[in-house]
Simulated scan of single mutants.
Amino acid sequence: MCAIDFEPVIATERLRLRKPRKADTARLAQHANDFDVARMTTAMPYPYGLDHAEGFLAQVSAQDPDREVVFVIEHPEHGAIGVMGFDGPSSDETEIGYWLGRPYWGAGFATEAAQGALIWAHRTWGRRYLRAGHFADNLASGQVLSKAGFLYTGEVRQRPSVARGGRPAPTRMMVWLA
Rank of each mutant, 00 (worst) to 15 (best):
T111H: 11
T111M: 07
E112R: 09
A113Y: 09
A114K: 00
A114D: 00
A114W: 02
Q115H: 06
Q115V: 15
Q115L: 15
G116V: 08
G116S: 10
A117Y: 11
A117N: 08
L118S: 03
I119V: 15
W120I: 08
W120D: 04
W120C: 02
W120R: 00
W120M: 05
W120Q: 04
W120L: 07
A121E: 02
A121W: 04
A121V: 09
H122D: 01
H122M: 09
H122R: 15
H122W: 10
R123H: 11
R123D: 15
R123T: 11
T124W: 03
T124V: 15
T124M: 12
T124C: 14
T124L: 05
W125T: 00
W125I: 04
W125S: 02
W125L: 14
W125V: 03
G126N: 01
G126I: 00
G126L: 00
R127M: 15
R127C: 11
R127Q: 14
R128M: 08
R128E: 15
R128N: 12
R128L: 10
Y129E: 13
Y129V: 07
L130N: 05
L130V: 14
L130S: 03
R131Y: 04
R131V: 10
R131A: 09
R131L: 15
A132E: 11
H134T: 03
H134A: 05
H134C: 06
H134M: 02
F135Y: 14
F135G: 04
F135Q: 03
F135N: 03
A136F: 00
A136W: 01
A136C: 07
D137K: 12
D137E: 14
D137G: 12
N138K: 04
N138E: 02
N138M: 04
L139T: 13
L139M: 02
L139N: 05
L139I: 12
L139Y: 04
L139D: 08
A140M: 01
A140E: 01
A140V: 06
G142F: 03
G142Y: 02
G142D: 02
G142I: 06
Q143D: 09
Q143S: 11
Q143Y: 06
Q143I: 08
V144K: 03
L145V: 08
L145H: 04
L145I: 07
S146Q: 09
S146D: 07
K147T: 06
A148P: 13
A148L: 09
A148I: 13
A148M: 10
A148W: 14
G149N: 11
G149R: 13
G149V: 13
F150P: 01
F150S: 02
F150G: 00
L151S: 15
Y152W: 04
Y152D: 06
T153F: 07
T153L: 07
G154W: 12
E155V: 14
E155W: 01
V156C: 05
V156P: 02
R157V: 07
R157E: 13
Q158S: 10
R159H: 10
R159P: 00
R159F: 05
P160M: 10
S161V: 09
S161H: 09
S161T: 10
S161F: 08
S161G: 11
V162H: 04
A163C: 11
R164L: 12
R164S: 14
G165P: 13
G165F: 10
G166A: 11
G166P: 15
G166W: 12
R167W: 01
R167H: 13
R167S: 13
R167P: 00
P168F: 01
P168M: 06
